[in-house]
Amino acid sequence: MTDILLSLLILAGALFTFVGSLGLARLRDFYTRLHGPTKATTLGVGCLLVASAVYFSLEGGSLSLHEVLVTLFLFITAPVSAHLLAKAALHLKVKSLAPPPDRPAPGPARD
């Protein structure tokens, strides 16, 4: 039973991690690429860490919760880095598919 739960968590975690990076490689402008690593990858690593906590709690016989620390840390820092990156990109006027609001739309969006 716990074996199935662990396998599901590990598989989900690895899949989300992969999809996050796929988004990073596949999407067409910086701002859309930002979404993959911020959400999918963070949840993926979160799933893996929960799997690790469950695994070591069962294996070691005593509760192992310090994985929660990394999970919390990642969930707090991911939006902060995303915000800073978006801010830096806006500052550098990185090419965007969506028209940024303080500038007129830069003609038809190109790839």
Partner: peptide, 15 residues
């Protein structure tokens, strides 16, 4: 609020 927006569906707070 900004961090919540970044972690929830399809949105990232930018500035």
């Amino acid at each position: 609020l900004a961090n919540t927006i970044s972690l929830t569906p399809g949105t990232v707070s930018a500035q």
